[in-house]
Design a protein around this nucleic acid. Structure first.
Length: 880
RNA sequence: GCGCGGUUAGCUCAGUGGUAGAGCAUUACCUUGACACGGUAGGGGUCGCAGGUUCGAACCCUGCACCGCGCACCA
């Protein structure tokens, strides 16, 4: 067994093991395996993206699930890949182009621009894959996919054609969300409402039939007045009822507009009069349809005003034109007033500019299988964790609108539609030379929604689809999760037509969002997003993984604090050193066994706690409570194993009794071997290193049989020990540990410095044996601990009441007044507790109505407190 | 307006009816033969507010406040 270096160096251990695993093909999934299948598809990161803390969280969870399943004997497929990320990638390249060459994509033309995107992809693509490897992700890299793989592209086009043939995809001129910066249509989901501080302008529209009489119209968008084609009021609004059917003069680009009545007008808003602008507002467009109003578009695609009739405004940016139009109206006496007004404005999720509702010819999908998609989640064929996301999901599906799937960007899947004159054909190949292909591309999510199965060939799909679990952030529940569920139900890629074979995944685990300490989202512009690679360099991938998992409560946002990652690193070091300690005392068995050794009470205690740990982690895993699993592992190892078991075990390790020494070392090996396996999914590298160093996997040989990642999960340690003797041992241990705590407290309150040995005397309670004295003595750092049933203390000797008797601390020249003070404090505390218990017991209703066990417990407590109090009072009295 | 989540120690969070917990931070002592990325001991909380149910409420019920999020409205 090679000797462990003094400190753990993740940089020396982690890449070494990852390379070995990868080379040996440990992560490769076998579609022909007889083992049960476990599968996860990665939420594909942007192909040119770099690793963020969000990715670390998400992929660590997937890796934990994959590694755990592998150990449990599943054939595991964790399928990796990347996404072409249409708008995101294109925007990045455009930005770069503007910076380096001061050009737009239109300057280059479509073909050249796409070549530049490919260059960009060549340069930045795949970085994130290498970063995931550094994190330790056990993906099957031989199956890595990309949304622009030939086969994948073909599948996307075929799906488009299929849905078109079914009549679910159609082309139409409708109101869409227009992003004037990216100059493309967006889906409703890509628009984020933000409250904006603007102003409400009250504009005067003169009545055509009654010159000199004006209608006041409140608007936040005076720059679109030229596109007004009517003025509307509520049909029952008494203020204006006589005007319905008459006309009003449009104040800019003067023209007579009909005054119409429509139910949607809110008489309480503004003046109760709405200017109807069908080209630039969804509600207005609908009103226009109901009243057959003409549509006038006064905006260029880039958001500038397109209205030669008003030269003062023509060509101005929409926001500049807004101010200018107010000035114009004001000059002409047509502005009644202006008041500040807050309203919600839709912003493009990507380009961060206000979106423009715009009438445009686009492709739409009428979602299929929405009822079925609701049902599979409602009926828990697919289970959401945490469960409350079910409601959000249902709410979206219940209000679902057709999906605008065409984009006017260049980087994406081309729409397989062809035009010649008025003719349209939807098919893979061009119908002929004189046909022009649609210039639009598809929404990136229109390719992502096939990810759960289109990434698998038929053989793989037969084994691994539906996938076991999807791990993702809740912000893409509509974009991706819901649509993948719909795609699975519609295209039925499963082995039969049955619904349960065609759900995309059985479980969905939604992670939290990582925020900074102030609760803000991580973002580049705030500079509050640490680079995970820096963190890995500082704390190791294992430290980062563990630290993050320990603070990631399921379903809640995570306040990131580097301190927590440091804790992860510290835990790795603790593990390392505990292993070193074991290693100093001889070699270990490849498969540690307990049977041939008599177990000490401390061994029974730590093994019982280990068994509790097994159950607790199993339960937590079932609910995807990774932070709880991590915390349990941490507490068990640090406190139960290191602080208590190892410390108590030193009595035997440093003794001359070979049999007992052997026993305690065997228990250490048993616990270490089991604990390494439990911890492996969280900290794969260090556990593999120690597993290998200790030779637990059977030493050298095939990595697939020696690696910890294929070792079976630990079984319960005490299943063959009778419960009574475990209980007896644990009770004894509890009294020993309690005594130790009391002894240490005596030392500290009596101001004995930690490096000074102290002498103790124990006047034993009935039944106390001297067997455990050496351990107590060691753990209270005693120079000597003697058992003396007849000990009569001098007044002022510090004393503590313990389960094994009265424990006295002998100090030369003890400070009597300090001891008096200490005693009085102790007495005060006890009196207080006794008072509480007595009050409870004297309440007749408590004694009558509370469960007998609870009452009994209180009675016991009362007895204990009273006895201890009597002793302490005696000691106190002796001092006077 | 509708819905969801949160409010417990300075910080991050556990805690589904019976003596309020952990880690970090903090204070004191300690480089002792695994570990100072460590050990030991301590201090620190009217569990957001107000009612109710109960022998007993951080926990169950009702209302409210504040923070965050989603949806709808948004002239």
């Amino acid at each position: 067994m090679p000797e462990l270096p003094k400190t753990y160096d993740p940089a020396a251990v982690e890449p070494k093991w990852y390379a070995r695993w990868d080379e040996a093909g440990c992560f490769r999934a076998d579609a022909h395996s007889a083992k049960p299948a476990f599968s996860i598809v990665i939420p594909p990161p942007n192909v040119t993206g770099i690793l963020t803390l969000g990715h670390v969280l998400n992929n660590t969870i997937q890796d934990i699930l994959s590694r755990r399943a592998r150990m449990q004997g599943f054939e595991v497929l964790w399928l990796p890949g990347t996404d072409h990320a249409g708008v995101g990638t294109q925007t990045a390249v455009e930005k770069h182009l503007r910076k380096t060459e001061n050009k737009t994509r239109h300057d280059l033309g479509r073909e050249e621009f796409l070549r530049r995107v490919l260059d960009w992809q060549e340069k930045h693509g795949g970085i994130i894959i290498e970063q995931l490897k550094r994190l330790g992700c056990s993906c099957d890299w031989s199956r890595q996919r990309y949304t622009f793989d030939d086969a994948y592209v073909l599948a996307v086009e075929r799906v488009f054609i299929d849905l078109f043939d079914k009549g679910l995809i159609y082309r139409g001129r409708r109101m869409i969300n227009w992003d004037p910066a990216a100059q493309t249509a967006l889906s409703d989901e890509e628009v984020i409402a933000r409250p904006q501080q603007g102003s409400l302008s009250y504009v005067r529209y003169e009545i055509v039939e009654e010159p000199g009489r004006y209608l006041e119209v409140a608007t936040t968008r005076p720059e679109t007045i030229m596109a007004d084609t009517a003025v509307a009021v509520h049909p029952t609004d008494q203020r204006y009822i006589d005007l319905i059917g008459k006309h009003a003069w449009r104040p800019l680009a003067r023209e007579a507009l009909p005054i119409i009545a429509d139910e949607v007008i809110d008489p309480k808003f503004g003046t109760g009069v709405l200017k109807v602008t069908p080209a630039h507002d969804k509600t207005d467009f609908d009103i226009g349809l109901r009243h057959s109003l003409p549509v006038i578009d006064v905006l260029h695609p880039d958001g500038r005003i397109n209205c030669p009739a008003v030269p003062e405004l023509d060509g101005l940016d929409r926001f500049v034109a807004r101010k200018k139009s107010v000035e114009l109206l004001s000059e002409r006496g047509l502005l009644a007033k202006e008041e500040p007004h807050e309203n919600n404005v839709g912003f493009s999720e990507r380009s961060e500019v206000a979106i423009e509702p715009r009438l445009s010819e686009q492709w739409f999908l009428r979602y299929p299988k929405t009822q079925e998609a609701l049902a599979v989640v409602r009926d828990h064929l697919i289970r959401f964790f945490p469960v409350h996301w079910e409601k959000v999901y249902a709410q979206w599906l219940e209000h679902i609108q057709d999906w605008c799937i065409s984009r006017q960007i260049w980087w994406g899947h081309r729409i397989p539609a062809w035009y010649r004159g008025d003719e349209t054909r939807v098919q893979l190949e061009s119908p002929g030379d004189d046909w022009q292909q649609d210039t639009d591309t598809l929404d990136t999510w229109f390719s992502s929604w096939l990810w759960a199965y289109e990434t698998m060939d038929l053989e793989t799909r037969a084994k691994f689809y539906p996938t076991s679990v999807l791990v993702t952030a809740p912000d893409i529940i509509f974009f991706w999760v819901a649509r993948m569920i719909i795609a699975g139900l519609e295209f039925k890629p499963g082995k039969t037509q049955a619904i349960e074979d065609n759900i995309a995944f059985r479980d969905v685990f939604f992670t939290g969002l990582i925020r900074d300490k102030q609760g803000r989202k991580m973002s580049k512009s705030l500079g509050n997003s640490p680079d995970p690679l820096d963190l890995i360099a500082k704390y190791g991938a294992d430290g980062l993984r563990f630290g993050l998992m320990r603070i990631a409560p399921s379903g809640q946002d995570i306040a990131f604090d580097e301190k927590q990652i440091e804790e992860g690193r510290n835990f790795a070091t603790k593990l390392w050193n505990a292993a070193r300690f074991r290693q100093m005392h001889g070699s270990s068995e490849a498969t540690p066994r307990l049977e041939e050794h008599p177990l000490s009470i401390y061994a029974l205690e730590v093994l019982a706690r280990f068994d509790e740990l097994l159950i607790a982690t199993e339960t937590a895993y079932r609910e995807y409570k990774f932070n709880e699993v991590a915390q349990r592992l941490y507490d068990f190892f640090w406190s139960d194993y290191c602080d208590w078991f190892i410390e108590a075990a030193k009595t035997e390790i440093f003794s001359e009794d070979e049999a007992r020494k052997k026993s305690v070392l065997a228990v250490m090996d048993f616990v270490l071997s089991g604990f390494l396996r439990l911890l492996h999914p969280f900290m794969p590298h260090i556990t593999e290193e120690l597993w290998s160093v200790f030779g637990f996997g059977g030493g050298e040989g095939d990595i697939k049989s020696s690696s910890i990642q294929f070792a079976s999960p630990p079984a319960a340690a005490l299943s063959s020990v009778d419960l009574q003797s475990i209980a007896a041992a644990r009770e004894k241990v509890a009294s020993v540990y309690e005594t130790i705590l009391a002894g240490r407290n005596l030392r500290a309150t009596s101001r004995i410095p930690s490096n000074k040995k102290a002498r103790f005397i124990l006047r034993p309670a009935t039944g106390t044996e001297d067997q455990e004295l050496p351990t107590i003595s060691r753990l209270v750092n005693a120079e000597e601990l003697t058992l003396d049933p007849k000990y009569q203390p001098e007044a002022g000797v510090p004393v503590a009441m313990t389960p094994v008797g009265e424990l006295y601390l002998l100090i030369a020249g003890g400070d009597k007044s300090a001891e008096r003070e200490r005693l009085e404090k102790e007495i005060g505390k006890l009196e207080n507790e006794l008072r509480i218990v007595e009050a409870k017991l004297s309440s007749a209703s408590f004694v009558e109505k509370a469960p007998a066990a609870v009452v009994q417990e209180h009675r016991q407590r009362k007895t204990d407190f009273s006895e201890q109090l009597a002793q302490l009072r005696k000691a106190r009295a002796a001092m006077d």
